[in-house]
Structure formats: C-alpha cells, structure tokens
C-alpha cells in the first residue's frame, strides 16, 4: 500500500455504534489520521471525496433498494472492502423482521408507515457484493478494528479469531454463569472478540460477535432446555443481535417448529 492509503467509511442501515468505536478512540484517531488519509467519513468530517479508496469500511445492513445500488457503487471504487459490525456481517437486529410480514412490522414500529420504503429482508453486505474482511460484533471491538487497520497498513489481512467467547471468559478468570448459576449463555457458540463483556458482569453472552468456528448450537440448545427453558425461549436466545446468521437461525427455526408441533 502506497504511503498514505485513502480510507472511506460508509453507513448503511445501522445505529452508528460501530463508527463511534472509531470516533471515540481519541488517541488512536490522531494516530490514524497520521497514518491514513480519511477520504470519506460523513460522521467525522465534512470532507467527502470521490473514490477510488484503498480501504473502505462499511457499517450497517442492506435494507432498502437504494442501499443495494449504493453498495455496488462503493464496491466498484474500493480496493479492499471491510464490513464492520453485526448489521453489516449478519443483517443485525433489523433482520429480526426477516421471515415476518414486513407490512405488519412497519405498522407496529413506525407512526407513519407510508413513508417507510424497505426491502423484504435486512441482509448482510456480503450477500450483495464481495467482502474482503468481516469484523463482527455489536459494536465491533475497537481494539480489533484498529488492530485490523494496523495490519492492513503492514500489507497483511488479519484473520479474526473464530474460537468461542469461553476462551476469553476463562483467560480473564470470570466464573461461568452456565455452570455456577444455571443460566443460559451463548458464549460457547459465539466467536470471541468482545473480551467476554457480559460474563464479566455475571450475565450470559448475547452472541453479538456471531457464530464461532462451526458452532454446536444444537448441543447448547439441548443444555438450555435442560436448564428449564422452553423451545421458544431458547429460540429467542439465538434470534438476537446476530440471529440471522445461518447457524443461529437454523437452530432457532428448528426449535420454533418443535414447539409449534408440540402444541
């Protein structure tokens, strides 16, 4: 990569939380400004420059027809496209509507539904264009994000770990909520990256970072049932922030069918 790579940041359907991970990193932001040229970052500066970009960060899922077009344009002017956050990598919390009647959801959520134009489904960026690197998380982990940028500047594409949250939970010496409290935790099927934030507060993991190395969601679901949850309650656990990720979605769907056929 030539002396100062041009970096752009774009936002699709999301809450800005991931971009904020960059904006709030005050020390790092200064350092970053020295290392890269920020060519397009609507949240941070008014300077909006045309592509091409060396590295493009995209936050948010694709959920409107405009975004489908926009992401293709962005891809065309980006040498390296990196999606950041649960929305961009698995459709995010918006993907909860996937598979439901959209009109119904819109009526429930918005006071003036006639202004809302939306696609049937909220989908990850990689369903539309080729993505060179995905950083999961809700929000992304700042250290992981800055680390990835630092590696790219060295000319290397990092490989974020796929091992479950449990490894970090144990490294940090947190007491397991499943074993010591009998509470559900998605840590065993979620990839590490957050620093085991929820177990640190004696809460089960919500799965923000998405499925880990091929996860055994079925075995974990059986365990949750043993803890006294109903199939639908277990399904709800899996249908959270990254619920549209295939591994979580499939187990949730199976559990819902199970409960439906039982009643």
């Amino acid at each position: 990569m030539s002396p100062k790579p041009r970096v752009a940041v774009f936002k699709m359907a999301s809450c800005d939380g991931c971009q904020l991970q960059l904006l709030d990193a005050e020390d790092a932001l200064l350092e970053l400004a020295g290392a890269i040229e920020i060519a397009n970052f609507a949240e941070a500066s008014s300077r909006l420059e045309e592509g091409p970009y060396d590295v493009t960060l995209v936050e948010g899922s694709i959920s409107t027809p405009e975004q489908v077009e926009q992401i293709k344009e962005i891809r065309a002017v980006s040498r390296f496209l990196m999606t950041i956050g649960a929305c961009a990598t698995s459709g995010g919390i918006q993907a909860l509507r996937n598979g439901r009647d959209l009109a119904e959801v819109v009526r429930q959520v918005y006071p003036t539904p006639e202004y809302v134009r939306s696609l049937e489904r909220s989908t990850p960026v990689a369903e539309h264009v080729k993505v060179d690197l995905e950083l999961t998380g809700c929000p992304v982990d700042r250290g992981q994000l800055l680390g990835a940028i630092a590696w790219l500047l060295q000319g290397s594409v990092p490989r974020p770990p796929t091992t479950p949250v449990c490894i970090e939970c144990k490294r940090r010496g947190y007491v397991c909520v499943v074993v010591a409290r009998g509470e559900p935790c998605l840590g065993p099927v979620t990839r590490t990256g957050c620093g085991a934030l929820c177990p640190a507060f004696a809460r089960g993991c919500y799965g923000c970072f998405g499925p880990s190395q091929p996860p055994n969601t079925e075995a974990l679901a059986r365990r949750f049932l043993e803890l006294g949850m109903s199939p639908v309650q277990v399904a709800e656990k899996f249908r959270f922030i990254t619920g549209y990720a295939p591994a979580f979605r499939e187990t949730a769907e199976r559990l819902e069918r199970e409960e439906a056929s039982a009643t």
Partner: peptide, 9 residues
C-alpha cells in the same frame, strides 16, 4: 497468507 504475503514485500 497473512505473514508470507508481508514477507513477499
């Protein structure tokens, strides 16, 4: 991969 691509440079 990761390391060898940097070595290439």
């Amino acid at each position: 991969g990761r390391v060898t691509n940097v070595i290439k440079g």
